[in-house]
Amino acid sequence: MSGPLEVLVRMVLTLALAMASAAMLVWVERRLLAAFQDRYGPNRVGPFGLFQLVADSIKLFTKEDWIPPFADRVPFILAPTIIVATGLLSFAVVPFTAAGALVDLNIGVLYFLALSSVSVYSIMLAGMASNSKYSLLGAVRAAGQMISYELAMGLSVASVVAMAGSFNLREIVAAQEGLPYVVLQPIAFLIFLIAGLAESKRSPFDLPEAENEIVAGYHTEYSSMKFAFFFLGEYLALVLFSSIATALFLGGGNGPWLPTIVWFGVKMAAIIYVFIWVRATFPRVRYDRLMAFGWKILVPAAILNLLVTGALVVAGSAGG
């Protein structure tokens, strides 16, 4: 019964899963950071502080939803919705289950990259519409950073696509039945992870919202649910990157004994754990070094990796 009802159910399930995991992640991250930092973290609301999330949501809902008088109203309101929308839309192609993704798109990888490019608009619009200097600085940093690292990310993904011979995430996962690409493509995996950190604006690449320097960067002027949308957007991005990384490099839900979705979750969690660990450990890089690192190291390395992969693939197909 692959009628509209089933599509609807799967849509709702996927979105609920994405939203729930993003929301849970807030709690997970706070608890994990606390563990890294010799403290307890939120442990008062509900068992293990699990309902902290509820308390936070109530707080955010009831805060004054303030639009600064000097802001440009329409883009100011539009900006936070874009980041959540692009984040959620991307989940359509993530192959969580054995049945594949919500939409079995044969250009799934491109779709993901395209939406991640669109999300830059959210940051840019927020920064410019706020009409505040800190926001502007944050937005300029974010735009430069995201566009630069997108390139490295695209190139690293291209090597995987070349090996799998498909843009379809389900097929890429299927191609890793024997050996996940993290073994065959370790450089691409590393580049993808670093670029993912930068794309999701996480430490040590959290320059667009570096509080010590530019207060809260592009969302300095946001409050209440509009701020919560940016917050949610960032965690969605984290879930998304870890799930795409799982699909591209860790063989998606492939694994013995356990159901696909569990394997997928475990692998995602491992990546998220690394992201949080990195956040607890590293200082923030400086803007010019971030750009230099992106353009002078990551992009050349990704190109080289792609060239070698391409040559091997061509040689392999010619030979075989």
């Binding site: 950071l33 890294f36 930092q37 010799d38 403290r39 430490s203 040590p204 959290d206 570096a210 010590n212 956040r279 607890a280 450990t281 590293f282 200082p283 923030r284 890089v285």
Partner: peptide, 16 residues
């Protein structure tokens, strides 16, 4: 100082 350069953890260790 760690926090100033974006490292969030040292401050908890030193405050301990």
């Amino acid at each position: 100082y760690g926090h100033d350069v974006g490292a969030m953890t040292p401050v908890f260790y030193t405050f301990n």
